[in-house]
């Protein structure tokens, strides 16, 4: 139901790298779970509105007042790499060629 190629495609979307063994197992396990999920297809859901959220709240707004936010040094404290007061990441240039 979900073959190795689809598993690899989804893993790429999810930014996950799977070993060969994981791909096989994932294909089997996801197919099994999806088989159960597809029983939803037995229901007649025509005309039923989807529920995205059980609570009716719309436009939960607070007064637009300036308040202090997390100081920069504290916000950066848990980062693996920082530079010049910001998060440091590798250049995306190399990826542009791979993608």
């Amino acid at each position: 139901m979900i073959d190795r190629e689809q598993v690899l495609h989804v893993a790429r979307l999810a930014r996950l790298e799977l070993t060969d063994e994981e791909v096989g197992r994932m294909s089997e396990e996801l197919s099994n779970v999806l088989g159960h999920i597809e029983k939803i297809g037995e229901l007649d859901l025509a005309g039923v509105a989807p529920t995205t959220h059980v609570v009716e709240v719309s436009n939960a707004l607070r007064p637009d007042v300036v308040t202090p936010s997390l100081p920069r040094d504290i916000a950066l404290a848990a980062a693996p790499a920082v530079a010049d007061g910001g998060f440091l990441v590798p250049s995306p240039q190399a990826d542009a060629i791979d993608e």
Partner: peptide, 15 residues
Amino acid sequence: VRYGACVEDGGLVGM
């Protein structure tokens, strides 16, 4: 990027 584990791999997507 911001917290937690980080495994470097040259590029950004690789990381």
